[in-house]
Amino acid sequence: MIEVSYLREYGKVKSLPMEVQETIQGILQILDTEYGADRNKYEDDGGYVLV
């Protein structure tokens, strides 16, 4: 299982197929933009991606 919460952690998914990487990147961009790149992924609004 891979947990990615911020766009800066995008490197964790480099081993996955490109289509999956692009989808995760889009989700992370939304999370960082809407909830902040310095949010607490477990306590604040926002979230993370599990693969």
Rank of each mutant, 00 (worst) to 15 (best):
I2E: 02
E3H: 11
E3V: 15
E3I: 15
E3N: 13
E3T: 14
E3D: 14
E3P: 01
V4Q: 03
V4D: 00
V4R: 01
S5E: 12
Y6Q: 09
Y6I: 02
L7Q: 06
L7Y: 12
L7G: 03
E9Y: 11
E9G: 04
E9T: 03
Y10D: 00
Y10S: 04
Y10K: 06
Y10W: 12
G11Q: 06
K12Q: 12
V13G: 01
V13D: 03
V13P: 06
V13N: 04
K14I: 07
K14F: 07
K14W: 03
S15N: 13
S15I: 09
L16C: 04
P17T: 11
M18G: 00
M18A: 13
M18D: 08
M18S: 05
M18R: 14
V20C: 03
V20G: 01
V20A: 08
Q21R: 15
Q21V: 12
Q21T: 06
Q21F: 12
E22N: 11
E22I: 08
E22L: 14
E22R: 14
E22Y: 04
T23R: 13
T23S: 10
T23C: 05
I24T: 03
I24S: 02
Q25V: 10
Q25M: 14
G26S: 09
G26W: 02
I27N: 00
I27A: 04
I27R: 02
I27M: 06
I27S: 00
L28H: 00
L28E: 02
I30E: 12
I30V: 14
I30H: 06
I30T: 11
L31I: 12
L31K: 03
D32W: 02
D32A: 03
D32E: 13
T33D: 15
E34K: 11
E34H: 08
E34P: 03
E34D: 13
E34N: 09
Y35D: 01
Y35M: 00
G36P: 04
G36F: 07
G36M: 04
A37F: 07
A37W: 06
D38H: 10
D38L: 11
R39K: 13
N40L: 13
N40P: 05
N40T: 07
N40K: 15
K41L: 11
K41S: 11
Y42C: 08
Y42P: 03
Y42I: 12
E43L: 15
E43F: 15
E43C: 11
D44Y: 06
D44A: 07
D44Q: 09
D44W: 05
D45N: 12
D45P: 10
G47H: 08
G47R: 10
Y48L: 15
Y48C: 12
V49M: 05
L50D: 01
L50E: 13
L50I: 15
V51L: 13
V51Q: 01
V51T: 10
